[in-house]
């Protein structure tokens, strides 16, 4: 697979930050290509750089050096404000602890990304309803997060991540706080989003069962890729 066709393309990505006067480099000269429509799991021990890589791919953080193309855009060159706008339409983020706004209903939480787009109220309502139906919570739209189970909350978070129809979803330990049954449902849902809706998903996980749901599993150690476990995707 040529790098031209990669949906995500990292070249020489390094991330360094300072803890006091000590420089810390969680990612070092990383190269990676991920084709569109891939479900990629990132695994590795704590401090291996997997969440850093996830944040870089999601435009939550910027690399210190290197290029990072997502959907043809070198997001490494975008400034903070530009990254914020880019995230609104290109990426959906799924958090381990859901990060729903507690005072808003499921419907309103899912609606949040759409308030940034020039859509009519009616169109927003339709898209939110579609997203909630897709995650199986069409009948829970009026419920607040405190009135939902953990699995349901995570499904609301997934609906929020997909409602603006981004091509890329990033998930940071999406099943880490769920029981096995709920975790299985979430992983099935993520797989469905890749298979039937063509999303590209990058997921950080410690759980081998969760990683098994992905098409590809990459292992990181000390900021470097050490293993690529699929033919569809490769460490460049």
């Amino acid at each position: 697979m040529s790098s031209y066709e990669s949906f995500i393309r990292c070249r020489g990505v390094t991330k360094t930050y300072h803890k006091g006067n000590t420089p810390v480099t969680p990612l070092s000269a990383l190269d990676l290509d991920v084709p569109r429509g891939t479900f990629l799991a990132l695994m590795g021990p704590s401090g291996s750089g997997k969440t850093t890589l996830l944040n870089l791919i999601a435009g939550i953080d910027s690399p210190t050096s290197g290029s990072l193309h997502v959907g043809g855009v070198d997001i490494a060159k975008l400034k903070r404000g530009q990254l914020t706008k880019w995230r609104a339409s290109h990426v959906g983020y799924i958090f381990q602890l859901y990060h729903l706004v507690p005072i808003l209903s499921a419907f309103e939480n899912v609606e949040l990304p759409l308030l940034l787009a020039p859509l009519s109220r009616k169109e927003r309502h339709r898209q939110v309803q579609v997203a909630l139906e897709l995650v199986g919570l069409g009948d829970r739209s009026d419920h607040r997060p405190s009135e939902l189970s953990g699995g349901q909350e995570q499904r609301v978070a997934i609906a929020r991540a997909i409602v603006a129809n981004p091509a890329l979803l990033v998930a940071d330990e999406p099943t880490g706080d769920l029981d096995r049954e709920s975790a299985t449902q979430i992983l099935n849902l993520l797989r469905e989003l890749v298979r039937e809706h063509g999303k590209t998903i990058v997921m950080v996980t410690h759980d081998p069962r969760a990683a098994a749901a992905a098409d590809t599993v990459l292992h990181l150690e000390k900021g470097r890729l050490v293993e690529a476990a699929d033919l569809n995707m490769q460490a460049a």
């Binding site: 939550i60 914020t84 995230r87 609104a88 990060h99 706004v101 949040l112 990304p113 940034l116």
Partner: peptide, 14 residues
């Protein structure tokens, strides 16, 4: 702080 960060992750500007 986390809620505000989440909203920024979703696409809201500071």
């Amino acid at each position: 702080v986390r809620e505000m960060a989440t909203l920024q992750a979703v696409g809201y500007s500071r």
